[in-house]
Design a protein around this nucleic acid. Structure first.
Lengths: 230, 230
DNA sequence: TCAAAAGTGTTGACGGTACACCCATGT
DNA sequence: ACATGGGTGTACCGTCAACACTTTTGA
């Protein structure tokens, strides 16, 4: 028998913190209602056990797909939580991931048929079981940090967006007002946004121009040691 | 039987990337010589299996102590590696930590009696088994990044150090020359360093003043949203 | 007195911040 | 015509980068 079998093994799960931003610039989080003990019936982070034949990332993506119908979204490992008593059942380690998606199109609600999944505004969410509050706090801190120096904010918006929408996104995540003229100068000077010819429609005021994030340009800049800031 | 037992479990290890900086400003890494298969005899990152009754952090600290004699050093979770075939034995997930210690005092070599532990300059290290090369690369990237906006560099120096030593540390990690006057201005303006009355001894030139990092001040600044930069 | 590293200021360029008004559109 | 958000420029200030010489000490 191999060396590795001398040790009893903790169980291993993945949990996902899924952030979404809706049309009203409300930052929301996706939760699922647990259908098994412990904490049956409570809202918790989507997640589940890692299978032997799948990588951690694959496991997180599978769980997300199974429980919420989400696929092909921005996805990143967050942190691994392994306190001894974080799960009352057993010793369970959880590798947490976080994801960002845009809620402007209504595609999301439809996908949540099988398991009960729902979006909660960050400020109105129920309190979470296990150490999920800690996981969420860690994820939010990471988002707040990362959005300043990497252009991941775009993941929360539709492909075409206006500068005001982008600015509001930053204001929501960072929790502070930004100056409109300075914000535009800064973001446009980076030359990572492509101005489209289209404009907003059906608004009761001057129509805003749409922009698009140019990921190719960003990659080139990044390789040259470019720095995205605020 | 509980829900958790329906699933076969991967094994769980911790691995440690231990960086040290010696008197000559050489950045080194600690490796241990494996005394069990697979890769018996090869140099690899220190690490081992997580026990059921200890947290991840405790496991990493224990492994480090057992294998290298190191204790009470800067320590932080790095990333969790879980590719399916990263270990030839079995499905093994590894939670990686990284540590920073100063090698100016000779306390280290003495502690490495039982298992064969040794320090290798980053550029002259042997190639590593498993995915340890990837883990090391991730750790080095993290160090390089983090040193710019959090004062963790001090962990690599003795308590008392000269500004030139500090500057060389940054030059080594960042891989670029820095301007002496600008570096001093910047670092002193933050008021995180305490100038001591002592100076270097036994040098064949003008003796440099010693400084000390004031962690208390840093904590206060940090709470107020202070930003350590370069 | 020489070698070797310590220590010290100024200037010009750039980027950040603060700030207020006119424009386009739909109702 | 009015309400609503879209869009724009300038002036001041602080920060960063570039740059070279004098001082101290031990050999």
């Amino acid at each position: 028998m191999s060396y590795t079998y001398e040790f009893p093994r903790p169980a291993l799960t993945v949990d996902c913190v899924v952030f979404g931003l809706d049309r009203d610039n409300l930052l929301k989080i996706m939760l699922i209602q647990r259908c098994l003990p412990p904490f049956e019936g409570q809202w918790a982070l989507p997640g589940g056990f890692v299978r032997l034949e799948e990588s951690l990332e694959a496991a997180a993506q599978r769980e997300l797909r199974e429980e919420t119908g989400l696929e092909n979204v921005f996805f990143e490992q967050l942190y691994t939580f392994g306190d001894v008593n974080r799960d009352p059942r057993d010793r369970i380690i959880s590798v947490a991931y976080y994801a960002l998606i845009n809620l402007w199109e209504y595609r999301i609600e439809a996908a949540t048929d099988a398991s009960a999944a729902a979006w909660f505004p960050l400020l109105k969410k129920p309190s979470l079981p296990f150490d999920h509050e800690q996981i969420l706090a860690t994820a939010f801190a990471r988002l707040k940090n990362k959005v300043r120096y990497e252009p991941i904010g775009f993941e929360l918006l539709p492909k075409k967006f206006t500068l005001t929408q982008l600015q509001k996104l930053y204001e929501t995540i960072l929790g502070q007002k930004l100056d409109k003229r300075n914000f535009r100068k800064k973001i446009l000077k980076m030359e990572l946004l492509v101005a489209l010819d289209e404009t907003e429609t059906a608004v009761a005021h001057r129509a805003a121009r749409f922009y698009q994030f140019d990921e190719q340009k960003y990659r080139k800049f990044k390789d040259k040691g470019f720095n995205f800031e605020l």
